[in-house]
Design a protein around this nucleic acid. Structure first.
Lengths: 196, 196
DNA sequence: TTTTTTGGCTAACACACGTTAGCTGTTTAT
DNA sequence: ATAAACAGCTAACGTGTGTTAGCCAAAAAA
């Protein structure tokens, strides 16, 4: 009988969720089966259900834990009394670092949320929409202060957020530049693109 | 008996492939079933097989028709005798317009190619790798000529290509700016980000 | 040590999937 | 008008899916 190994403070459920993130990232949510996941964890498929309610629950947990981190961060950044362009750069750097250090989760949350079921689906979409509006509002205030070029703010948000998801390719590439070089390059191009 | 409707020069297979693109985009390749597709086409699932070999064949056709268009375009652009930055802008505009006008196909090719089976999979990945290297080489020549900032070229490619896939969000949004405004905004930000 | 809780296991269900076989009507070519 | 090709149908196959039931050993609590 092969128990799931855990260190202190890491529940067996956490182990499963983490492996699920990795598997969902690799194969996609639909293509990753509970039997695949069980094998990755080192257990039979049915045993997983001693710790989780359903396959979809795994997706909920991943998507919302990521979303909450971003919402918390934008709360903090909005509250700071600094120029809009600095707020943008802070958010940008946070996104980059999340994508670098919590790759699997963030990737899954980004690409696989479609497979959430209502009411989680609508909920997630709402949070996403609101987050982007708040981000766009910061950019618009930057435009009003002449810190930022006169561009369409929602388009800028869309470019920034999707550009960041390109870090996926960096993770997959064999000859990686360092994480900090990557961060600086991205900031140079994107912040540079917004300012004159 | 409900025949698949076709205009002249559009085969029934083309109708199926087009509907498949739309469905794969909406639900993902794995989640879209042949019965879904059949319903969208107005026919029973088994009838599809009078026109296609398999579900995966649909994905091949989509992925490679998109890939071929991009390869052909980069051939043309490379051959032109113009500054690197103009080549970059031409490629950028081509990508944007492909994403605007052949949304479903391009999106599917971008996101669902993982579900190709070998040898198509390796083939596709290869073409993709080579395309990106050629794009990066153009950027590097721009850096050597001081047309472009001193940045890591592969990172720039990754940002550009992923930023473009953000047009997905534009398609889904209710209050769209016009296609040409979108194009100009994207060019402003991205070309602006590469140049001083 | 005894009892309770936890976390594995095997077996199985019900269902959805891609696909094939075989048939029949419809369109096209001769 | 007749034959050949095309394009639909129903029925069914085998397989893989998420999940449940019921059982038993090991760990934790008493």
């Amino acid at each position: 009988m092969a128990r799931i190994k855990t260190d202190k403070n890491i529940s067996r459920k956490d182990v499963i969720v983490t492996k699920a993130a990795s598997l969902f990232r690799e194969k996609g949510f639909k293509a990753a089966s509970m039997r695949d996941l069980a094998e990755a964890v080192g257990v039979e498929a049915a045993s997983l259900y001693n710790h989780i309610k359903s396959k979809t629950e795994l997706l909920h947990e991943l998507c919302f834990s990521v979303a909450n981190r971003f919402l918390q961060r934008i709360d903090e950044v909005e509250a700071e009394k600094i120029p809009a362009i600095e707020k943008i750069e802070k958010l940008l750097r946070f996104h980059i670092n999340e994508m670098i250090h919590h790759y699997e989760e963030v990737y899954v949350s980004d690409r696989e949320w479609k497979h959430l079921a209502d009411p989680y689906l609508s909920n997630f979409q709402n949070q996403r929409r609101i987050y982007r509006k708040r981000f766009a509002a910061i950019i618009e205030s930057g435009i009003r202060n002449n810190e930022v070029k006169k561009i369409d703010a929602p388009t800028a948000v869309l470019i920034i957020l999707h550009a960041i998801s390109g870090i996926e390719s960096w993770h997959r590439s064999t000859q990686k530049i360092s994480a900090s070089e990557l961060e600086e390059n991205m900031v140079t191009i994107l912040v540079g693109g917004l300012t004159q």
